[in-house]
Design a binder for these strands. Structure first.
Lengths: 123, 123
DNA sequence: TTTGCTGTATTAGTACAATAATACAATAAC
DNA sequence: GTTATTGTATTATTGTACTAATACAGCAAA
């Protein structure tokens, strides 16, 4: 049900984002071990290298750590994950305001859009 | 001040979006004539071919019409432009909810984010 | 030691965006 | 009619991003 990969953007990037979300939402709990590169690659139906690239970005973000033959573990630092989750959500909000501003909507009008969109989510 | 082109996405696509916004926000008014391909290309600092590709997408969207040697004119159909502007804004809102949902935020929580973000826009 | 699992590095193939240089077509202005 | 300017089409080239195939390296358990 996951891994809805689009052709329009780099796959490794989408993989990174999905893995990121899985960690931040607790699907891969803090301190736990993650599935192996090849395992995840098979699950997502991509080349191991592509998945690896995504995982290395997780390392870079401090969300995971990898040791040579022992596998990869999720950070135990829950402060970090909570903060990052908030930051990503804040970024989404800022992006929304930016996009609507470019279309000539004031912040108040943009806020109205959100309220209206929230009412009817028919799908 | 415009034409903030990023390397991360196709240039012709960004050009299209910017031109689109210029029309929807009235910078190129309904029924008016647009600058020529070469002129716009020079202004944006890109190859004429690249700009042309963007402009042809405008044609495809029904926002502009081009006649051979007479130039390109913005559609006079203000209903279309108003509707498209609303649609784009609605899309931004939906995207916001989608992104926050992927991070485990409920719609109510997402709405809270917007309100809080709206207060402190310190930049 | 051997086997099998980790993560990692290197290489090459493929696709495509962007540019550039032209040439062409059609209309308007003179 | 000539000239200038418009949009359009074509072709080649360059650079680069993405992916895949493959080989390598390190550790653990049998």
């Amino acid at each position: 049900m996951d891994w809805q990969l689009s052709e329009e953007r780099p796959i490794f990037q989408q993989l990174y984002e999905e893995m990121c979300r899985r960690i931040l939402t607790g699907r891969y709990p803090p301190g736990s071990r993650m599935p192996s590169v090849r395992e995840l690659a098979a699950e997502a139906g991509v080349n191991p290298n592509t998945m690896q690239r995504a995982l290395q970005q997780l390392d870079g973000a401090g969300l995971t750590e990898s040791t040579r033959a022992d596998g990869r573990t999720v950070t135990a630092d829950e402060t970090l994950t909570r903060r990052l989750r908030q930051e990503l959500a804040g970024g989404a909000a800022r992006r929304f305001f930016c996009e609507t501003a470019a279309l000539g909507f004031s912040r108040a009008e943009a806020k109205e859009l959100i309220l209206r969109e929230e009412d009817g989510h028919h799908e």
